[in-house]
Design a protein around this nucleic acid. Structure first.
Lengths: 161, 161
DNA sequence: CACGATTAAGTTGTGCACAACTCAATGGCT
DNA sequence: AGCCATTGAGTTGTGCACAACTTAATCGTG
C-alpha cells in the first residue's frame, strides 16, 4: 500500500484487532447465552441475576451502592430493579433519612430464590468445561484488562475529575 | 477456603460465580467503552466497526455470510447494515441470481474509511497496556471458552435439529 | 438562614442482542 | 408441473447499556 517495502504492517494490526474484538465480544455473548438458558428456570435475565447475586451477598442496598458493585448507572438499574419488583423479588423504599436514596430490599420470595440459584454455578462450570484454576487465571487477566481499560478511558476522555 | 470441612460449599460457588460473571461482563463493557471513545472519530459504533472490519478483509458479502463471520443473525444485522447504508458506507443490493440474498457492498467512502481505521488497533493496544503475546493467550482462552459454551448451549437446548 | 452546587434516582432516546415471527424466493421430490 | 419444506432477509417486541437530561433532596459556605 502506501509503504515502501513492508507488506502491509498496519493492515495486519487491523486483522489482529478484528480477532481480539471478536473473541471478547463472542465470548461475552456466548456466556450470556448459556446463562440465559439456565436462568430461564429462575425467571431471571443475566443482568438481573447479577443484581440478585449482589443482594444475596451484601444484603439490602441503595440503588447507588448496587451500581457501584456492578459498575452500572441509574439509567440501567432503575428499569431493571423495577422489573425485579414487578416479579416480586425485591421492594423499593425511599430511605428515611435521605429521601433521595432508594433502598432495594429482598422480599421473602427474592431471598428464597437463592436456594434455587445455588445449582447455577455448577451447571455453568460444567458448560465451560474449564478447571477452577483456569477460570481463576482467566478472571485475573480479564480484571487486569478491565482495570487497564478503565484508566485508559479516563485519559482518552480529557474530563479530569 | 472450602477445605476438608466445607462450611458452606454451595454458597462459595455462588460467590465465585458472581466474580466470574462480573469479570467477563465488566471486561466486555470496558472494552466496548474504550472502543466507543476511539471510534467516535470514525462515526462508528463498536458492532458497526466489527462489520466494517469483516468487509474490509473479506470484500463484499451477503448479509448471511456477514452473520456467519460475526455470529449475528438478521435481526441484529438488518437494522445495523441499514444504518451503515444511511451513513453512506455501504450499499445493499439484492443478488441477481438469488433474489432472497442481499449483497452488502462497500461504497468508495466505506472503503476509504479503512485508511482512517488503521490507527485504531494501536490506540487500543496502548489502552490495554498488554503485550502482544499476552493478548494472544487471552484470545486463545476466550475462544476456547466460547467454543465450549457453544457446544454446551446446544446440549442444554434439546432441539436436536 | 439562604442560595448555589452536588447528589440520587429516574426519564428519554439510540443502538445492540436475541427470540419469535412474517414473507418471498428457492429447491427438492414425486 | 405442482406442492411443500427450507432459506434469507426483514419486522416486532423485550431487555440491556449508556449518554444526556430532569427533578427533588441534601450539603456547604458565606
Amino acid at each position: 500500500m502506501t509503504a515502501t517495502q513492508t507488506p502491509a504492517p498496519e493492515a495486519d494490526w487491523l486483522r489482529l484487532d478484528r480477532q481480539i474484538c471478536f473473541s471478547l465480544h463472542a465470548a461475552s455473548r456466548a456466556f450470556n447465552s448459556v446463562y440465559r438458558v439456565i436462568l430461564k428456570d429462575l425467571g431471571l435475565t443475566y443482568p438481573q441475576y447479577l443484581v440478585m447475586l449482589v443482594l444475596w451477598e451484601q444484603g439490602d442496598l441503595p440503588v447507588k451502592k448496587l451500581g457501584e458493585h456492578l459498575r452500572l448507572d441509574s439509567g440501567t438499574l432503575s428499569p431493571l430493579v423495577k422489573r425485579l419488583e414487578g416479579a416480586g423479588l425485591v421492594r423499593r423504599e425511599r430511605s428515611a433519612h435521605d429521601e433521595r436514596s432508594v433502598q432495594v430490599r429482598l422480599t421473602g420470595e427474592g431471598a428464597a430464590l437463592r436456594e434455587r440459584a445455588l445449582q447455577v454455578p455448577r451447571r455453568i462450570m460444567a458448560a465451560t468445561g474449564f478447571e477452577l484454576t483456569e477460570i481463576g487465571e482467566l478472571r485475573e487477566r480479564l480484571d487486569r484488562l478491565t482495570a487497564a481499560l478503565d484508566t485508559a478511558a479516563l485519559e482518552e476522555a480529557p474530563e479530569h475529575h
